[in-house]
Design a protein around this nucleic acid. Structure first.
Lengths: 220, 220
DNA sequence: TAGTTCCGTGATAGGTTCTAACTAAAATTG
DNA sequence: CAATTTTAGTTAGAACCTATCACGGAACTA
């Protein structure tokens, strides 16, 4: 009864098929999420569109929440990778912000899946904390660099002196922590209100407001 | 066939009964929203808890979306009233911000119902625009007063010069418009991330971050 | 008291997630 | 190569959900 599949990385054709079907399900799920939001995700509809009948999907995802969790994790990873790639080109904080906005506008529901109202019942799995840390790391790097290049007066550190375990040992000065937090919350404030349609009919371009907030965070 | 009920404010007992049942339904709905969020709202569950069977509720609310819309409008009104009441006592911008935060923490799902991810399918009715304007008016009043009392350098107006139709003819200077917008988006940024649990495990008090952002908006 | 209006019911249709039992095919084993 | 085990997908069904309809009876009106 010893598993013989321990032959390192060689995947059996069954596993490859399984992975492919899982990917196809996710693909349909993303399409559904992009058009109607996460709460409108229906396993039945996906199954029908894939030509198989309802319960078959439960071979691939234990539950609807499981699939949604997978989407959340993928979205998180996508954002982390996108930001990391931008940062790797030596981009500054401003470029990072525009990358974030582009990523959000590319698929608004995907952004809301990560940073919006938590979906019905599920709890964010522990897996995302790692990815979340990765996002925070690139953000902290950029903030540290921005402050080193132009030590503009930050919005005052203060309460962060004693609480920096969330930075996961990142060697960023308190001012960088404060800047990263402001970067995150302020840009999310503008972005989420824009994506939720709260600026509709106000007659100004949300992009300009985003840039204005960014100017305050990282002057050009 | 001339309606005789036009006798001013005298309501027929039927109408009173109807209004009372509608209120009771809303009460149960709020309770359900407060515990599990708007997407978990179930007409059937409410009916059962009220001791009557399913379809009876459709005499009082045409659909589930109708009930949710009612909740959204009520939440909007509640927020507008609360802010207005605070402002009426001569409170400044900082007090207004703390009123907002208290209101949000009092029932997080109610805040998310207004400013969070839009619920499944429905579209915000036009009724809310009036209440939204009322909120904006008290906010603009406070911002104008704050700038008059201490003309601290605002985060630069700029693009708002030409677009101020959303202020609904309010006699606020562009700097106040910019301040109001920053007030809204920044505090929402902190609040929504806090309510969604994104600060969990970071080891700092969200209230302090909120205050820090507020210090930047309206120095004490 | 007679008439009308309206509330609440049960039945029904169609939707969802998800479990259970069964079939059939494929991979692994002897 | 044959037998066995593992696995994919099916149908049936339970337990929910929203929403519509027709009907009986209660309540209000005149």
């Amino acid at each position: 009864m010893v598993k013989k599949e321990e032959r390192a990385a060689a995947e059996s054709p069954r596993e490859r098929y399984r992975a492919q079907v899982r990917a196809e399900i996710k693909e349909h799920a993303w399409q559904q999420v992009a058009t109607a939001g996460a709460s409108a995700l229906s396993l039945n509809a996906i199954a029908k569109r894939m030509g198989m009948s309802g319960p078959a999907l439960y071979r691939y995802y234990a539950s609807r929440d499981d699939l949604i969790t997978e989407l959340v994790k993928e979205a998180y990873r996508s954002l982390a990778d996108t930001l990391h790639d931008t940062a790797a080109t030596g981009a500054d904080l401003r470029a990072l912000a525009h990358t974030l906005r582009d990523w959000a506008l590319e698929d608004p529901h995907r952004y809301l899946l990560v940073y919006g109202t938590p979906v019905p019942g599920y709890h964010a799995p522990d897996d995302v904390t790692g990815v979340s840390d990765a996002i925070m790391k690139t953000l902290l790097d950029a903030c540290t660099a921005a402050l080193a290049a132009r030590p503009v007066a930050p919005p005052a550190p203060g309460f962060l002196a004693g609480h920096r375990e969330w930075a996961a040992g990142h060697p960023a000065p308190p001012a960088a922590l404060r800047l990263a937090l402001a970067f995150w919350t302020r840009l999310h404030g503008v972005l989420s209100l824009e994506l939720a349609g709260h600026f509709a009919g106000m007659g100004f371009d949300p992009a300009l407001l985003f840039t204005a907030e960014l100017d305050d965070l990282a002057p050009r």
